[in-house]
Design a protein around this nucleic acid. Structure first.
Lengths: 315, 315
DNA sequence: TTGTATGCGTTATCAT
DNA sequence: ATGATAACGCATACAA
């Protein structure tokens, strides 16, 4: 339980009997050094168990080799899978991942961005409530901090990895129409704090209108309602006559499936249900989830590649 | 798109027409300062958009206010939920979360621990393949870096947030026995790289033996087998006579449910299936998942509280 | 109350 | 080839 003792390059230099600069050059394989000194430094480093302090390096080099990532919540598989994708690419490139989550709160969002920026991250990968109105995000960009958006439809001059929510939603409407559905609904969770959700509804409704069909019913659920199948069943029942539901995400779609079965009806015979995201678990369900596949991990990977490219370009 | 310009405390001091130390004292509300200077410094900081550099602070203060967290993969909801729990507690305490994942690879595990330690994290929260044999982890502890294990049964003198895998598995065996099952199996993914999985099997088998029942069949699946319900169904069919299955985790249990249905049988009428973890989605399934509830997010929260307590104690 | 100077771990510059 | 030293952003001991 010895107390925190860090071995610095100074220790290595002393042990090897050489100057700090020389030790640095040897350990970094930069500059030149005689075979003899090289050997001494390397064994000294090994014996002392030396490893560079990322902090010292960051302070001197101006780069922290750390990327900040903000998502609403890791409890939602879409974001967890996306972050895993980010992590995969990042670690391959020698970067570390600093993570934050907002729990779908717009203020927390802004605070998190500010904190991340203060941590001197080299770049930001972000999914937030209202990126287009985030003062912290704008400030970060003005400061020259590279930002890559995830899941968001493009904004201003920000880079963005995304699917076209509007177009995808139109596809859903088209599928429903082809199946003869005229009485449809769009179910959303936190509609007001998700541009993704709003864009999906907009596309869904637009296509319905274009086909002369009635607007889909918009149902905004609270977390409690979505997580309690009995309650959800009650809500669906009260709407009557519904034959097709477009759920704003897979999690919700699964809940709707359950609620439907609770009502003694069956999916998709009595009710068509389509989700959005394409989370892994959806493929393992008894009744495979019909959904818009967005490949969350690929989204994370793409956002990261985009960001790293930008980072290279500036360096 | 102006290039990266960081405002330092030096800039604030110059703008406010005072010394660096004074600016630091005012901004940190430490030490004393005249109302006049205080005012000048604060407005200067505001106007320049100053915020402290966490790196400078870390280097000077010896603490980075950052905690490193290693899990096998965020694509597995158990870990994602746990990490979210960690994040919740951490952000409340003013700490940042540096994350890494190993993709269930023992070597990657060790490398990640080393990298995290080099980042000068103040503590480590870890779920890995073989913590008891990890040289990097032992080294970290010897260096005085506080470590908190997540999901692992206790090891040596490490702190650990966990459920008693062995005991929980015995409970499952007991339940099965009470239902009259004698022909059982334990399904695992990456059995060799998960002490959790091994302990669960051990407990399951121990209880079976204690009751004079035959040993449960141990089936190790590859990722491919687990993710292809048809293949899984084939494997289950080839075993014949099986009436109860204990799956090493919920993800797997859900796959088994699907495979079973594919075989024309029903859960739980023809086959009892029990999982492990208690991931959120399990509650939303048509046939609610029978499982050992471990409350992953609570596990993450507990591991974090434990770690922070340790951190306080040492400070 | 205030400012100067030092050190944290590293790399780069510049002599030697 | 090698080493002393400045600089990075910050907090603090110390001097004024």
């Amino acid at each position: 339980m010895g107390h925190r003792q860090k071995v610095t390059i100074k220790d290595v230099a002393r042990e090897a009997g050489c100057g700090i600069a020389t030790a640095s050059r040897v350990l970094n394989k930069s500059g030149s050094a005689s075979a003899e000194v090289r050997e001494r430094v390397e064994t000294a480093a090994r014996e002392l168990g030396f490893s560079f302090s990322a902090i010292g390096r960051a302070l001197q080099g101006g780069r922290s080799m750390t990327i900040g990532c903000l998502v609403p919540s890791l409890a939602n598989p879409v974001f967890a899978e996306a972050v895993q994708g980010v992590q995969d690419v990042l670690s391959g490139a020698g970067y570390q991942l600093l993570i934050a989550s907002s729990n779908y709160d717009g203020d927390a969002d802004n605070e998190a961005i500010a904190t991340l920026a203060a941590k001197d991250v080299d770049g930001l990968i972000v999914t937030m409530v209202a990126p287009e109105r985030s003062a912290a995000l704008m400030l970060a960009r003005r400061r020259g901090l590279p930002v890559s958006l995830m899941f968001h439809d493009p904004i201003d001059g920000f880079l963005s990895a995304h699917v076209d929510n509007f177009a995808a939603a139109r596809d859903v409407a088209q599928r429903f129409a082809a199946l003869g559905h005229t009485n449809t609904a769009f179910l959303a969770l936190r509609f007001s704090s998700s541009d993704r959700s709003r864009n999906r509804y907009a596309g869904f409704r637009a296509e319905c209108r274009a086909r002369g069909l009635p607007d889909p019913v918009l149902i905004e659920l609270t977390e409690a309602e979505a997580n309690t199948p009995e309650t959800l069943a009650g809500i669906l029942a009260s709407l009557g006559g519904l034959t097709a539901i477009f759920a704003s995400n897979d999690f919700l779609a699964i809940a709707v499936q359950k609620a439907t079965r609770l009502m003694g009806k069956s999916v998709p015979k009595d009710l068509s249900v389509v989700g959005f995201d394409g989370i892994e678990i959806g493929r393992l369900l008894d009744v495979p989830l019909a959904t818009i596949e967005t490949a969350p991990d690929a989204m994370g990977r793409q956002a990261t590649h985009t960001l790293l490219d930008l980072l290279q370009g500036k360096a």
